[in-house]
Design a protein around this nucleic acid. Sequence first.
DNA 1: CGGATGCTTGAAGCTGCTCAAGTGAAGTGG
DNA 2: CCACTTCACTTGAGCAGCTTCAAGCATCCG
Lengths: 243, 243
Amino acid sequence: MHAHADTSPLVLGALRRACRFCSLFELCWPMGLDGSDLRRLRSIVRHTGVLPCGNHLFRVGDRFTAIYAVHTGCIKSYTLDAGGHEFVHGFHLRGELLGFDAVYPDQHCCNAVILQPCSVCVIPYRDIARLSLDIHSMHSQLVRLMSREFSKQLTNREGAGATQRIAAFLLNIGPRLQQTESSPGVFRLPMSREDIASYLSISAETLSRLLAKLHGMGLIDVCRRQVRLVDTARLNLIAQGMN
Amino acid sequence: MHAHADTSPLVLGALRRACRFCSLFELCWPMGLDGSDLRRLRSIVRHTGVLPCGNHLFRVGDRFTAIYAVHTGCIKSYTLDAGGHEFVHGFHLRGELLGFDAVYPDQHCCNAVILQPCSVCVIPYRDIARLSLDIHSMHSQLVRLMSREFSKQLTNREGAGATQRIAAFLLNIGPRLQQTESSPGVFRLPMSREDIASYLSISAETLSRLLAKLHGMGLIDVCRRQVRLVDTARLNLIAQGMN
DNA sequence: CGGATGCTTGAAGCTGCTCAAGTGAAGTGG
DNA sequence: CCACTTCACTTGAGCAGCTTCAAGCATCCG
C-alpha cells in the first residue's frame, strides 16, 4: 500500500509508466521535475489495493484530507436531497480526479461510491500543499487541474432536450471508457440506467425509450450496458441541438 | 485608475474600508498581512471607474489576464450556443468574484456584460501568482476562493421543478442584493425576466406565471423588478422541494 | 428453479413550452 | 405637454415532451 523509499532508475521508470494514463501525470511529470523532486512527490502518494463495489471513498461531511485519482474502475459521486432522493453529480473513470469538492468548506459535500472494482491513488492534500510551496510549477499546475475539473462539470447540463443530453453523454463517456483501441465506439457502461438518468436529470424510463429511439435511427447499438456508437457524426449533430 | 504608491497609514486604512464588503477581503486581509505585504498587494490591484451598462468586461476567447471583483453594480456572465441562443451562467454582485472560468484553458470561456453601472477591482493574475509564491497563506486562500466560486455554481441547477428553482433563486439573490438593512426582504432585481429565465433554464413566460402564482400564495410581492419576500419560511420549504 | 434486480414498454396525465395577443411603463419627437 | 413608439412584462390557449404508474421481460444469483 505504501510507496517504498526506493529511488532506483528502474522504480522511477515504473512510476512513470503507472502515471502515464493518469490525470496526475500532468501534475507530477511534464513540468520538469528532476529525480529529487519526483522522489518527494512519490513519497506522498499512496496506492490503494483493489476496492470492492459498494464501498465509499468518502461521504458528505468527511473531513477533507486528500485528492484521489482513479487508476482503474469507476466511482460515482452523488448527493441525497432532503427527501432522500439520489442526485448523481458525475462518474470518475481511469485517470480522472475527484475530491476537489471539499477544498473550500474543508469537508466533502458529496458522496463517492465505487461502481466497479477500483484502485486509486491517494494524494494527501496537506502534503501536496506543502510540496507546492517549494516546487512553484506544481502550485500553478494544481490550480489549473482544479479549474479543469470544475469546468468539466459546467459544460454538462447545458443542452435542452433529453435526446440531446443523452447523445452528449454517450459521446463524452465513450472515449473515457474505451479500453481497447481495436474496436472504436464500443464500450460497456459501468453504471445503471438509474444512475445515468439521475445524472442527466431525466427519468430512467425516458432514458430507456430514447436509447431505443437512437437505436431505431441507426445511430447506436445498445444491449443492456453494452454500447456501440454507429454514427458518431449524426450523434454529434444531435448533441449540439442540430436536429 | 491606477493605485498610487502612497503607503501612509491613512491610505492603508482607506483600502481596508474599500475592501471590507469585498470577497477579496478574505484573500488579502484576514490572513495576517503586515504593512509591507499589504502594500505589495495594493500595488497590483487596479480600481476601474464606473463602467456603463452594455459594456463587456471580457468575451469568449479573450486571453486570461485577471480576476475581477465587483465593487458596485451587476455583471452577467453568459455564453451563446451554436444557434446563437443565450445561456446565462450567473450574476455577479457587490463583493463577488469572476474570471475564474479562464484559469484552465488560459482564455475566457464565457462573456461578461454589465447590467448595472459597475465599478470593479482588477487583480492581474500573473502578479497575484507571483505574490502568492512569497506569501504562502495567500496561495491557499486563492485556491479556496476558486473552489468556493465553483461550488457556488454547482449548488444551483439542482432542484427539479420550476417553482422550486425560482424560490431558491429569490432566496439566494435577495440577501446579495439587499442594500438597506432597514427593510428586510425588499430588493430590486438588476436583470430582466429573460435573463433570470435563461439562468434557471425555463421560459420567460413560465417565470412570469410562477412569480404570479407565488404572489397569489402570499409568499412574495412583485411589481416589475421590485421584489419583496413576504413569507421566507414557506419559500424555503418550496425551495427545498417540500410542497 | 425461483426470486431479485435491472431494463423495457405501454398508457394517461401534467408540467412547461410555443405562439400570440394584450398591457403598462418609459422614452421620443412634434 | 401629449400622442407615438418601443420595450419589458403579463396573460391566454394549445401542444409536445417528459413523468408517473403499472405491467411485462430478461439477466443474474442463490
